[in-house]
Amino acid sequence: MLADERDDTDEVLAARAAAGEASAFEALVTRYQTRVFGLACRLTGNENDAADVMQDTFLQAYRHLASFRGEARFGTWLYRIATNAALMQRRARVRRPSESLDAFLPAFDEAGVHRATPQELSVANHVEELLDRESLAAKARDAVDRLPDSCRAAFVLRDLEDLTTAEVAEVLGIEPAAVRQRVHRARLLLRGYLNALAGGCT
């Protein structure tokens, strides 16, 4: 890689790559490979599928560089390709149906008051002290995998990849209000899941 390519913006590199400069595309791969792999791991739940998704993502990006016109940011455009590739990968896999997380939604009495006590409601905050790193990582992967398809990508992009709600809306091609709705549902399910994991009530 040429020294100056480390300083060029994504959009400059993308334009040069589209004009046929292989080294500019290589610089983009180097810049984004870890992020794309991380996103793919979170969306597919395993490293092998994530590696396939990563390869597919960069191949598609390369082939469609001409259609990237700089209207979106390059990162958003690439995330859209990666998210779609991960969705295809999930569909191609024969999976046993995963158990719904609905049991972890908060429970209220007839008056709309939380059934659990404050102590029971907040044990999720201690889950990191109760489980070792590896068990927690496995449980976390499993939980994200068990989210409804409708809200997994929105949650992963918004809360795990730290995109803004507007960026997630752009990646998924939906309204910001729909992003908030999906992320909220995922947060409720996962909060309850972690709370149960730590021995509390939802």
Binding site: C41, T117, P118, E128, A140, D159, L194, N195
Partner: peptide
């Protein structure tokens, strides 16, 4: 409402716990 105060804290904390637990390095 102490229940809601506890609930909100865990609602905010859960995404961070999951983010930290699902960080993957590229081998």
């Amino acid at each position: 409402c102490p229940k809601c105060t506890a609930f909100v804290a865990s609602y905010r904390e859960a995404p961070r716990v999951l983010r930290d637990a699902t960080i993957a390095a590229l081998p």
